[in-house]
Design a protein around this nucleic acid. Structure first.
Length: 407
DNA sequence: TCTCCACAGGAAATTGGGGGTT
DNA sequence: AACCCCCAATTTCCTGTGGAGA
């Protein structure tokens, strides 16, 4: 038995459980696929494709739908000898301004020498980008993931779809497919962008448990050995994910982890027990990833909240979080920010789902205020904090005691 | 009822850093 | 070297809100 052949009888084609796997069909999203195809229909007549905006929470098939449709467009162009088809994908969580997005596009499109140009005006970069696209010719689709991160700086969302009309592109066509999980995103756009981008708007409703079961069964057929999943495994994965966010990605991940556990235990059947264990692992992993994605100041705020939670004082008002935060900041030796900043940090933690901030009104002095609490398991969080040097010693000894500074 | 507290959150300015072109 | 551009995080300043308490 070699390293890679463990003799397990669980998986046949494991990669069908990876995030980037594109199934042959998307049974629960045929409506959305049709709509998106409509947006690309003008391409066949040499006209601009309509730009599209895909709205839905994580794991609702936005990426899968896009890939699926774009693959078809690509195939179409493969039969049209003289036309190029280019797909450029940028994640706006990495490139959070128009300038950076254009820079990112340039690094993809110009010969490997350019790396995120800086020091030039946005206009200059736009010109370079349009020149490159013209050289490529044919059709360019620019896929912008997490497009809501651009929000206030949405210049390119206007420039690109209009480039052809404005004569900035002559030999090429270009359109945008934007994706966001922010349902209010459309309202945040400037008026001129709103109508050009909102040609086609697709709303992805969360999958329910039935949808998820269908999706999981589809993956099971490809990825697992026949009859290796005990009967309740798929329903359990589906139910769990449906109850949470209705995310197919999460459901598949749970299933995958369960399978891996069965394999590493040398079991021949994947059981409900494996699923439950898989869920725990994913939660721990989720907390750790979430924590690593935060800035140190965000982490300190979260740590303050954890301390209060340990004392059983949550949910709690922002001002108490702030005074706890000040203790944390002092312990780990970082700048102490103003309370205004901590208000923003708490909002951040809420949008990252690490904490929950709920609006309250009334209280001792009236007026609106927030009460915050953790949205992740305290023990998992403490474990995760232990991996960050700076928080060693602080997070292990929650709650933070008041300093006895009588030297 | 009226006032005022204590908070929320928008806007603008600041700080400090990264990096171009000529 | 001199001069330019971009950016994220934070602070400063400010306006708005609604019940508590007089």
């Amino acid at each position: 038995m070699s390293l890679f052949d463990d003799g397990s009888k669980i998986f046949t084609k494991e990669k069908a459980l990876n995030e980037d796997w594109i199934p042959d069909n998307l049974p629960e999203r045929s409506e959305e696929i049709q709509k998106l195809e409509m947006a690309f229909r003008p391409v066949a007549n040499g006209a601009d494709a309509k730009s599209a905006l895909l709205i839905g929470k994580a794991g609702q098939g936005k990426t899968a739908t896009t890939n699926f449709v774009l693959n078809q467009v690509r195939k179409y162009f493969e039969n049209e000898e003289d036309e190029n088809f280019t797909k450029l994908r940028v994640s706006c969580s990495d490139a959070t301004t128009s300038y950076q997005v254009v820079g990112e596009l340039l690094t993809m499109v110009e010969d490997g020498t350019t790396v995120r140009p800086k020091g030039r005006s946005l206009g200059h970069l736009n010109k370079r980008l349009f020149n490159e696209l013209d050289d490529l010719g044919g059709y360019a689709v620019i896929v912008l993931d997490e497009i809501d991160h651009l929000a206030s700086d949405d210049d390119i969302l206007y420039e690109i779809p209009r480039a052809r009309q404005q004569g900035r592109l002559e030999d090429a066509h270009a359109s945008i497919v934007g994706m966001t999980n922010d349902f209010e995103f459309r309202e945040k756009l400037s008026a001129k962008v709103k109508d050009s981008l909102a040609d086609t708007v697709l709303n992805f409703e969360p999958y329910d448990a039935n949808d998820l079961r269908t999706i999981l069964s589809q993956r099971e057929e490809v990825a697992f050995v026949d009859d290796v999943l005990s009967e309740d495994v798929i329903p359990l994965c589906a139910a769990r994910a449906a109850q949470d966010e209705g995310s197919a990605r999460q459901a598949i991940k749970i299933l995958y982890h369960a399978g891996e556990l069965a394999r590493s235990n040398g079991d021949t059947l994947v059981t409900e027990e494996h699923v439950r264990e898989g869920i725990d692992r994913i939660e721990q992993e989720y907390v750790l990833n979430g924590l690593n994605g935060l800035t140190t100041q965000d982490q300190a705020t979260l740590c303050a909240l954890a301390s209060l939670e340990k004392k059983g004082e949550t949910p709690t008002r922002t001002k108490y979080v702030y005074s706890e935060y000040k203790k944390v900041a002092e312990r780990i030796d970082i700048n102490t920010l103003t309370s205004r900043s901590i208000r923003d940090k708490l909002q951040n933690l809420d949008t990252y789902s690490m904490a929950i901030a709920s609006e309250k009104t009334g209280g001792s002095r009236g007026g609106p205020h927030y009460e915050s609490e953790l949205n992740v398991d305290l023990d998992a969080l403490v474990t995760a904090f232990a991996t960050i040097d700076r928080f060693q010693g602080v997070s292990q000894n929650l709650p933070i005691e008041d300093k006895q500074s009588t030297l």
